[in-house]
């Protein structure tokens, strides 16, 4: 595609090979050109936060990575190009996806939501028992009747039933009460010990707490990439890139 518009691949702060490399990613929907040559790398460990104002293409980026949006460009997962594969293949290759607004199956029980991914374990899976004890007790309840926070836990739990090489998680704390935000953050921090996460998040205190690296999008392009601590420490830059500033104490 046209190279002038694509930002150069971002230098990451860590040396080991990245789990995911995205090169010159474009997404066009109907008449609009939403991603205009996005390039970045996701390190093989920890949480990478994808930031930006509303409507800059964060959700579209995640969707295009697993083939839910029509895309061109190169997407490399652990050395393998995956941009031509179907969503199902990509997920089976090891990218787990937790969409914005959870999208749990409201008419199915908690157990069924999980068994859909792994028929043999469901809520019996050790990781579910360990991280989501609340879901185990609610296994027979319809997911549609759960609270927002509980639905988020279902959405997280079901992707964790696969062996993932990378998790894409879109605004997991959206619309949640502060106490639940902390609970979700705890889960994410624990999951990130084993699996790298590419996280879209508006909640900067949470980003500061769990993210190591940040990538900032604006108008369909990467405008900043670097360490999370550096960005958030620089109030001027934060305001310029995200249009918001965090209070110095920044309590969650």
């Amino acid at each position: 595609m046209n190279d002038e518009t694509s930002a150069p691949p971002v230098e990451t702060t860590r040396s080991p090979a990245p789990v995911l490399t995205v090169d010159d990613l474009h997404v066009r929907y109907g008449g609009s050109h939403i991603l205009q040559g996005v390039s970045f790398e996701v390190p093989a460990t920890g949480v990478t936060a994808l930031l930006g104002r509303n409507g800059v293409g964060k959700t579209t980026t995640l969707k295009s990575l697993i083939g839910l949006a029509p895309r061109t460009g190169r997407i490399v997962l652990d050395g393998e190009e995956i941009q031509t594969r179907t969503t199902t293949r990509i997920v089976r290759e090891g990218i787990g996806y937790v969409p914005e607004d959870r999208e749990v199956f409201g008419g199915l029980t908690v157990e069924e939501n999980l068994r859909l991914v792994d028929p043999s374990t469901g809520t019996d899976a050790p990781i579910v028992q360990k991280l989501f004890p609340d879901l185990v007790t609610r296994r027979a309840q319809r997911a549609g009747t759960l609270s927002g926070g509980q639905q988020q836990m279902v959405a997280l739990a079901r992707v964790l039933l696969r062996d993932n090489r990378l998790l894409l998680i879109d605004e997991p704390t959206k619309g949640l009460a502060p106490k639940l935000v902390t609970e979700v953050a705890d889960v994410l921090a624990e999951v990130a010990e084993a699996t790298p996460i590419l996280l879209v998040e508006q909640n900067l205190p949470l980003v500061r707490r769990i993210a190591d690296t940040v990538i900032v999008l604006d108008a369909g392009q990467v405008v900043h990439a670097g360490s999370a601590a550096d960005l958030i420490a620089d109030q001027e830059l934060t305001r310029e890139l995200l249009g918001v500033a965090m209070r110095r104490d920044g309590a969650a």
Binding site: L68, V91, E112, V159
Partner: peptide, 14 residues
Amino acid sequence: RAGVENRTMVEALG
């Protein structure tokens, strides 16, 4: 049943 509710999400779960 899951697909009738949300086909895309079924695919997105692999």
